[in-house]
Amino acid sequence: MQATATESAVQTRSSGRAKGRFNKFRQYRMLFLMLVPGFIFLLVFNYAPMYGLVLAFKDFRITSGILDSPWVGMKHFNKVFDDPHFYVVLKNTILISVYKLIFGFPAPIAFALLLNEMRRPLFRKWVQTVSYLPHFISWIVLAGIFTTLFSLDGPVNALVKAFGHAPVVFMADERYFRSILVGTSVFQSFGWSSIIFLAAIAGVDPQLHEAAIMDGAGRFRRMIQITLPMLAPVISIMLILSMGTILDAGFDQIFNMYNAQVYGVADVIDTYVYRLGLINADYSYSTAVGMFKSVVALILLLSVNRLVKAVGGSDHTLW
């Protein structure tokens, strides 16, 4: 109700006179026309294949195809939820994902802000370029490097020993493993993720800074009071969108880094489903798990969207 009221208010203001639905469509005709190609793409490449989702409620028979495979109702979901190990991996997934969000989400923002403070263009360019590099190196390679770094005679343990402590097998220690996962993930992605924030900073009107300087605001204050608020819309939308992948804790990373000693804290939905799939490739089961993940993501996304709306108004939300 409220939305409609605002809408018509806006319309009244922008067109000056309300002339009913037909006029409204006439007014927006070009905008609707612009939406057509995107609409077609979504219909053809996203919505048309979505009938595959029914596999979650069927037993897939390869020669019958998706539509003619027999219905089995909630069988695959029951299998998922009756499996006690599923709750372990669900918990791990959520924890790892949330930690990654808490530490990984602010890191690129802070990096972008600091980068923006650097006034030597050449140096800044270097830092910026180099910070992206880890993004291009696969987790197979990175995992090998981190295993060496955290090994008993690796540099991290050398430091530990220098402080007079006994060396630790970090990669096999349940107390440290999640921290290592989160830390290395931040390391790999902070530079690359900062691009979007740099782009937003690039859009900040220089006049705002000038005005603040006139008022005698220092660099730090301007960073917090001008640049950061200008980033708020990007930050909030990135935060909301990141909810869409909340149950993807990072398969490549974890698969290449975990070992039997830390399964208890590191086994996540994707690694578990992968191991099950190796023995018994089951499209229906994995579709059911995928659907579960999507539904959770949808709920979270809508909740966070609502939360952001309540806190910051509708300017920063998805809709």
Binding site: G38, L42, N46, Y47, A48, P49, M50, Y51, G52, L53, L55, I66, L241, G244, Y283, T287, G290, M291, S294, A297, L298, L301, L318
Partner: peptide, 13 residues
Amino acid sequence: LLLTMLFTGGLIP
């Protein structure tokens, strides 16, 4: 638009 971010049909379709 948003739904397509969350739900995909899978490899076969």
